[in-house]
Write a protein that binds this DNA or RNA. Sequence first.
DNA 1: TTGTAAGCGTTATCAT
DNA 2: ATGATAACGCTTACAA
Lengths: 343, 343
Amino acid sequence: MALVSIKDVARAAGVSDKTVSRVVNREANVHPDTMEKVERAIAELNYVPNLSARLVRTNQSRTIGVMTDLVSTTPYSGEILRGIHDWAKRFNKTVLIIHTGGDPEEEERAWRTFQEHRADGVIYATMFHRDAGLRRDALKLPTVMVNCFSSSDPDLPAIVPDDYGGCVGLIDHLLDLGHRRIAHVRLNPNLKAAHLRLAAYRDTLARRGIEVDETLVAEGMDGEVGKDLNVAFESTLALLKRDEPPSAIFCGNDEIALQVYCAVLSQGLQIPRDVSVVGFDDFQTVSKGLRPQLTTAALPYFRLGYEGAALLETLLGEHDVKGVSVMDCPLVSRGSTGAALER
Amino acid sequence: MALVSIKDVARAAGVSDKTVSRVVNREANVHPDTMEKVERAIAELNYVPNLSARLVRTNQSRTIGVMTDLVSTTPYSGEILRGIHDWAKRFNKTVLIIHTGGDPEEEERAWRTFQEHRADGVIYATMFHRDAGLRRDALKLPTVMVNCFSSSDPDLPAIVPDDYGGCVGLIDHLLDLGHRRIAHVRLNPNLKAAHLRLAAYRDTLARRGIEVDETLVAEGMDGEVGKDLNVAFESTLALLKRDEPPSAIFCGNDEIALQVYCAVLSQGLQIPRDVSVVGFDDFQTVSKGLRPQLTTAALPYFRLGYEGAALLETLLGEHDVKGVSVMDCPLVSRGSTGAALER
DNA sequence: TTGTAAGCGTTATCAT
DNA sequence: ATGATAACGCTTACAA
């Protein structure tokens, strides 16, 4: 009943176990005839090697653990996992994912599970860009952080998106189109990205010689992350009803842009004729679903995962890997931005 | 250098390997004192059992393989995977995910990988509801289909969402609000769901004694699934400009609803005052992001995954499991629907 | 080129 | 209640 083992193959082919092992692992020094005999037996018996048995002997699991704080859904961040899987497939590794929801007890269990499986290393991935607050002694295995970092130990290897740079690109784009009154509807201020994006907004305007009008900065959402209360619609209505309304609105992300669209359109205004709108994330269901489609900056979730896995591999290769790397958020120019009206 | 094994613990505790094994596996008949000695040694040496070694002996991997056709992103369907993970965590199983993109060669490789890991069974999950066309002899392990089915072998165990029933709920809801001219902006007709949703639309109107006006059925998208061309915006404009415009629009899904919103609002109309709108999927970034929020039917992705895993377990327990089960798509009533205007 | 013997870390069997 | 011994399926080391 038990599955066929290397011994069954050996018997069928009339050779020793070791010879079968050689064929399976494509080792040198096997006579072509022997090889053929063995391969025929393998095919006939439908033999598939047992990875666990191999691991017991070699101690090489070729497995990486992935720990995420995923609870409900920040939809596209699942792309991080796809990036990791893609890398793993290419390099023939196994991926073991555990969603902990950020619960410390669950995380403790996850570390243990990774150890039980003798994972080579771990990717600690968060579903939004944040301080994971990890301490070196909490890591039971070599670890790379993805989409997060540790303020208490900044040397720990990490990869995060370049929120700041992406926003610079967006604001420059609007300025190049002639916009001078650019409003900002903010992300939830509990998010790291909210601060980076606001800073980039202010800095870029200043660099280009535009005075920052703080009354053009409005709240878009608030409350605990994931259960945020979204007020972007109301904030936008208020902005539009001002005496001197903005000619462009820079939204904290695409989800906010969605509400900004609803508000702008409900006032009988047109995008981009009356108001240009830019988002952030390139959350495609929204950014490509809106009419006109949304100009935004792409959060490189897939690459974050892929490069994170690659970085872990470097780390495991005993190379020194230190500190936080940053991934581009390229501008994606679509129909929601146009030249500012002459006044 | 090698990790600490059961022998190291046995030596440290002054007992035999087997006794340590007994403690680790909480077997009966261990003296409390012995148990304590052993547990102290385990803690001191930081011993973690090696699952692979255990598997070699017991032949119980407690692992389920998951094969998906995920390529780029149908965002929320990642929830299927979360449902599977949740189930697995609760029942202490390991999940092995492979994204094949639907490529037959990749699928072949995936089956082999599952066999190498001695997975107990497999979940074959697709990212949208469709005919997977699987044949029994292609399955190398006990398999349950999730979000898909096999027309060529309808007895294969499968779980799919109740697209039809969900739409009945939506249309009934609109009829109860007094709407009589309900338009339908369709899903991509290459999707199974497109036909189910259209059929439910027609059947429900007929059942309630409303004559189906086929000119109120408009195309929403077309082309290869995943790269669809979305024309819902234009279709909606055409519907609204008719002499007798619809008082409500039933959208093929939430993504289409997004465009319908843009079209309705751009005409200076209000939702739901002038037009009620319903979607399908409850794709929350859209359905809860729109203003007003969208009335829709919830695609139970998470439950599909969770129940799929549970069904696989039943199948592995040698119970007979046959045919396709169906999961409810409950109505989620929000602000986009209101009473029809008197005429 | 091929085979033998030992061993990886665990559990199963059967004594004690 | 505890332990000795064999066994799981594979690879390593070494011999032939």
